[in-house]
C-alpha cells in the first residue's frame, strides 16, 4: 500500500469484486468507476471551495476522458463550469531514449489559459510518477498556474519520484511485474480497472520498465 497518499479513499465505498478471466483480475467494474469519479468530483469541490478558478487538464489518452467526466460531474454537483483542457507530456518525458518514440497526443489549452488558476492534472494510473513530473514541465510552457494538484483513478504505488496525488480513486497494492489496465467506454469496450500479470493484448498504463 503506498503510504505517501494524503487523501485516504474510504475503501468501504468501493465494492472490489474480483472476477478472473485469463490471468487478469478486475478490481473496479463500471459502477465502481462511476462511484469513484463521483467521489473525486465531490472532493475537488470540497477542497477547492466550490471549484472557483479550477482548471482540469487531462493527460491523454485516458486521463483526458476522465477529466471530461469529472468536469461534467462538477457541473452537475456544484453548478460550476471548471476550465477543461488536455496536456500531452510525451515531448517532456525522460524515457523516450530507453522506451522509444511514441505518437504525440493532443494539447488543448483551456479557454482562459492557466495563469493564476488552480490546475488539477488528471491521469488514469499513478505509477512511477514520471508522467506527472513530465506534466509539471509541460505546464511551464503553457503558463504559470497558482497551484497544481493531481487526480488519478488508480494509485498503484512504486513511486520513483517525490510525487503524490491529491485525489485518488483507488489505492491498489501491486507487484512491479503486474500491469494495471484502465478501460474507459469512450475508447474501450467498457469501464473497468483490472490487473494483468503479463503483457495483455492491449498494452496500456503502468507497465513496468
Amino acid at each position: 500500500m503506498p503510504a505517501q497518499s494524503n487523501s485516504r479513499p474510504s475503501s468501504r465505498h468501493i465494492t472490489t469484486s474480483s472476477s478472473t478471466y485469463g490471468d487478469s483480475k478486475t478490481v473496479l467494474h463500471a459502477d465502481d468507476v462511476a462511484r469513484v469519479l463521483d467521489r473525486i468530483a465531490h472532493q475537488i469541490l470540497e477542497k477547492t471551495r466550490g471549484g472557483a478558478d479550477v482548471v482540469l487538464l487531462g493527460i491523454p489518452t485516458r486521463g483526458a476522458y476522465l477529466a471530461d467526466r469529472l468536469a461534467a460531474r462538477i457541473r452537475a454537483f456544484g453548478s460550476v463550469d471548471v476550465g477543461l483542457g488536455m496536456l500531452d507530456v510525451t515531448l517532456h518525458r525522460d524515457d523516450l531514449r530507453t522506451r522509444g518514440v511514441r505518437p504525440l497526443g493532443k494539447t488543448i489549452e483551456p479557454a482562459g489559459g492557466i495563469d493564476g488558476k488552480l490546475v488539477i492534472l488528471v491521469d488514469d494510473v499513478l505509477f512511477s510518477g514520471r508522467t506527472a513530473r513530465a506534466a509539471l514541465d509541460a505546464l511551464n510552457d503553457l503558463g504559470r498556474p497558482r497551484s497544481v494538484q493531481l487526480a488519478v483513478l488508480v494509485d498503484r504505488g512504486h513511486r520513483e519520484l517525490p510525487i503524490r496525488a491529491d485525489y485518488v480513486g483507488k489505492n491498489l497494492p501491486t507487484a512491479r511485474e503486474e500491469q494495471v489496465k484502465v478501460s474507459l467506454s469512450e475508447i474501450d469496450d467498457e469501464d473497468s480497472v483490472y490487473i494483468a500479470m503479463k503483457s495483455a493484448p492491449r498494452s496500456e498504463s503502468g507497465q513496468p520498465e
Binding site: D88, L91, T98, R99, V101, R102, T131
Partner: peptide, 20 residues
Amino acid sequence: LYHLLAGVDQPAPVLEEVSP
C-alpha cells in the same frame, strides 16, 4: 526529427500504442 532521433537508443516502435 522527433521520430528519428528521440528514441535513438532503442529503435522506435512507432506503431505500437503506448500510453503516456
